[in-house]
Simulated assay, not measured.
Amino acid sequence: MRIVHRTILWALLLLFAAYFLAPLYVMLVTSFKDMDQVRATSMVALPTQPTFEAWTKAWSSACTGTDCRGLQPFFMNSVLMVVPAVALSTLLGALNGYVLAQWRFRGSETMFALMLFGVFMPMQVVLLPMSQVLGWLGIASSIWGLILMHLLAGLPTTTLFFRNYYVGLPPELVKAAMLDGASFWQIFRRIVLPLSVPILVVTVIWQFTAIWNDFLYGVVFSGADSKPITVGLNNLANTTSSVKEYNVDMAAALIAALPTLFVYVVAGKYFVRGLTAGAVKG
Rank of each mutant, 00 (worst) to 15 (best):
G274L: 01
S183H: 09
M123T: 15
M130L: 14
P23M: 07
G70T: 12
L28N: 08
T240F: 08
N247E: 15
V29K: 08
L14S: 07
G135V: 10
R189W: 10
D67E: 15
K281V: 07
I187T: 10
A87F: 12
C68H: 08
L195G: 03
V38I: 15
T30G: 08
A85H: 06
M43Q: 13
K269L: 03
V265F: 15
Y19S: 07
E245S: 00
A11D: 07
L200V: 03
S78H: 10
F271R: 03
A113H: 06
W59Y: 09
D214E: 12
L169H: 05
T209F: 05
N77Y: 12
P259N: 08
P156V: 06
V265S: 14
V220W: 05
V202H: 07
L13W: 02
S108E: 02
M123Q: 15
F208R: 01
E109S: 11
L13Q: 02
V192H: 01
F74A: 03
K57G: 04
V272Y: 03
E53V: 08
W206T: 07
R2G: 13
A101N: 10
T48I: 12
T66P: 14
R39I: 11
P23Q: 08
R69M: 07
N234T: 04
L155R: 04
W136D: 15
L13G: 02
S142H: 06
T30L: 12
M250I: 06
G135E: 12
T66K: 11
T157N: 05
D180Q: 13
L169R: 02
C63F: 09
T51A: 15
A40M: 14
G168W: 00
S131V: 07
T64V: 02
P73N: 06
S242K: 15
N234V: 10
A101Y: 01
P23F: 00
L21A: 09
G282R: 01
V263N: 04
W144A: 15
V82E: 07
S31T: 04
I147L: 03
G118C: 04
A54W: 01
G274D: 06
Q124S: 11
T66E: 14
V133Q: 11
A101Q: 06
A87M: 11
F16C: 11
T209K: 02
V265W: 10
F215M: 08
N164E: 09
A62P: 00
L216N: 10
S31W: 04
S108T: 00
S226K: 00
F271Q: 07
Q102R: 05
I143W: 01
F162S: 01
I8V: 10
A153L: 04
